[in-house]
Design a protein around this nucleic acid. Structure first.
Lengths: 241, 241
DNA sequence: CGAGCCCTTGACACTGTTCAAGGGCGGTGG
DNA sequence: CCACCGCCCTTGAACAGTGTCAAGGGCTCG
């Protein structure tokens, strides 16, 4: 079986070779999915979890009038709905944003991993806790930052995460979200996203056009977004075996 | 050693007796803590996690100007910072709200549990994922609801959780938060919390005074808070062994 | 009795939403 | 090849919701 470059993304490098192999072997199948396809519906019983190999996906909840709130954005290497393994169904929907390549991992193989390879099991646990840490930061973003701060904070999170998976090196990176997606991530309207991006551009802080983000002034963006990347635990892993 | 009534709170009833005993045995010590004491500081290396036995605690992050955002509220039975077991340090602070009784569980004993009792290990994992599910709902609350909706949603979450641990039976329950705490949970100012509570009271939906919440109109509160308790996974557990 | 904490209320400013109109661009079909 | 359509972004104007600042009152505790 071919190996997957970004497997377990942010933390994949810390796997032992045999652990990595165990995880590769747990993949039952790989599928191509079109953009904007719903993969998992809230409440649906699940017996597989989805590993995102290429492309972007999102988890979200809709309110009564159809307004959407993203609760997570996923990039290549993310174990998108690993939460469904212990939970057995999800409290939200999952969909692709771009065309994507996804690997399905049956839950019974994950159970076997937690029994046979406790350290890898804790690594999987760790991975879901990174999601929780990002959730907390999103709560902070929505609860305490204004529109420019939210956008700066969100873009910085994306930049740091993209760097870890080598999809960003300089100050520019591809982020295939439209302004509606940004609005749904940042708890704003797309009209206000447009205005706020115009303001950030005018002040020379960053630009976002045609799916390309460029961060011109990281220092100032970090200031207005009150951003520190600590919560991404970039330099930490699970204890070694 | 005495047994702890609320151990692993919302899910404790689903433990096998011997699993429950394993968890009890993992407790190294029990402490009394005063109200409004910080227990864990962001970034601090941790080798224990905290099980809350009685009282209320919160996890929160402060912004640059000192405004606080709660990211979680904890009740008796919650494994407050179990996240610190895989993560080894936290991205936020943890403090008591009321006087509290807390049990410390050393991480090496948790490691032993994941090795010797994988099912209990998955149950602990499950417990951290419930926190993540609540985080997501908080994101939705802050991103998509207005002030009355946020308060209704928050109070309903508290009510359902309190019922599970038998600290609420009718429509009233003790919730020892002041309006500043409510503001910090709901991403508002305390002034606006006061006005919004007055409005909810005037409309006959709920009252909150002297640390006692009474929900008079659950149906309407659920409507304006767009609340459904599904995300609390009240009727689900981890698969049986 | 005074201090401090918490809650309430009012006036006002401001941030972000809503509604509406228009423009650029790429894809599709005549 | 061109016209049209749909999607996305931009801009304006009016408006609603929430924050800010400030003052005052009730209660508890020392």
């Amino acid at each position: 079986m071919r190996t997957h470059r970004f497997l377990l993304g942010r933390r994949g490098a810390q796997l032992q070779p045999q652990e990595r192999q165990l995880l590769e072997d747990a993949i039952a199948s790989v599928h191509l999915v079109d953009a904007r396809q719903m993969l998992v519906r809230q409440g649906e019983p699940l017996s597989n979890s989805t590993l995102l190999l290429t492309g972007f996906m999102a988890r979200y909840m809709d309110d009564r009038s159809g307004h959407r709130q993203l609760v997570a954005l996923h990039m290549p290497g993310d174990f998108v709905d690993l939460h469904a393994f212990p939970l057995k169904h999800l409290d939200h929907d999952v969909a692709t944003i771009t065309p994507a390549e996804v690997a399905l991992v049956p839950h019974d193989r994950l159970t076997a991993i937690t029994e046979a390879a406790p350290h890898l099991g804790r690594m999987l646990w760790f991975s879901t806790l990174l999601d929780a840490a990002m959730h907390r930061e999103w709560i902070f973003r929505l609860g305490r930052l204004d529109a420019p701060g939210r956008m700066a904070h969100f873009l910085l999170e994306c930049w740091y995460r993209m760097r870890v998976i080598a999809l960003a090196d300089g100050l520019s990176f591809r982020l295939p979200l439209n302004q509606m997606d940004m609005a749904e991530a940042c708890g704003m309207t797309s009209v206000h996203v447009s205005r706020t991006l115009a303001m950030l551009r005018r002040r020379g802080l960053c630009t976002m056009a045609d799916g390309i983000v460029t961060l011109h002034d990281i220092v100032e963006l970090r200031r207005i977004g009150e951003f520190s990347p600590d919560y991404l635990y970039l330099h930490d892993g699970v204890e070694t075996p």
